[in-house]
Amino acid sequence: MDKLFRYIASTQIWRSIFRHGYPDTPRNRTLAVLSNVVLHLHPVKVRRSGIQLSYTWCMGGLTFFLFLVETITGLLLMFYYRPTAELAYQDIFALREHVPIGVMREVHRWAAHLMVISVWLHMYRVFLTGSYKPPREFNWNVGVILLVITLLLSFTGYLLPWDQLAVWAITVGTNMARATPFLGHEGPGAALISFGGLNFIHAGDDVRFGLLGGRFVGEAALMRFYVLHCVGFPLVAAGLMALHFWRVRKDGGISGPL
């Protein structure tokens, strides 16, 4: 056995991928982190306090892990799902009927719920350890935007099954936009934006109409939410996460007492 491993580790293929020996010496441990594109998100050495579970709760890492889970399961779901009012519900229903032990929809949904929880807890931990204080003010702000994006990702995904639960939850959520001051047709100040008795802000052109592409949650809204959910928000989130992780390191690693 030992011989076999040693043989594999000495082949040209293996050595073309891993350019260092088994990571049990300081040199090789350093190389293991530095020469791996995923691992080199990390510094070579970390403070003991920063990797303690009772300090970080591992919630940022968990959020990122759940984001990856969502990306993979979401991609698989996209194979089966067509975002039209006619087909969306059927396609989701067919997943249950025709895919024998399919759990991708379940994993996608439960991981999404968990991600909202873990991002809240991550923020809670960062606040309670005062980790937003200088020099991490900027990264806290990146975090707040990530929080909003996470909620928007979840919210846009909620509509896609196109069942009663989905459509009415989104109706309740987007109804509020009607009341945006000045820009919603039932908002304070909207009536002021008029000319010669002609109202510029009405149900056919206010912000809610812009969000939904119509006066109610219909086909156009489904397409908008689908595109945002599958392409728009994930791209923004991935970009911001890269920035977030980079800043964690630039700001001196996970916070600790100075």
Binding site: T30, A32, L39, K45, V46, R47, R48
Partner: peptide, 10 residues
């Protein structure tokens, strides 16, 4: 704990 530094791997 913050005074001690450990290797990321492992």
């Amino acid at each position: 704990l913050s005074k001690q530094k450990v290797f990321t791997w492992p």
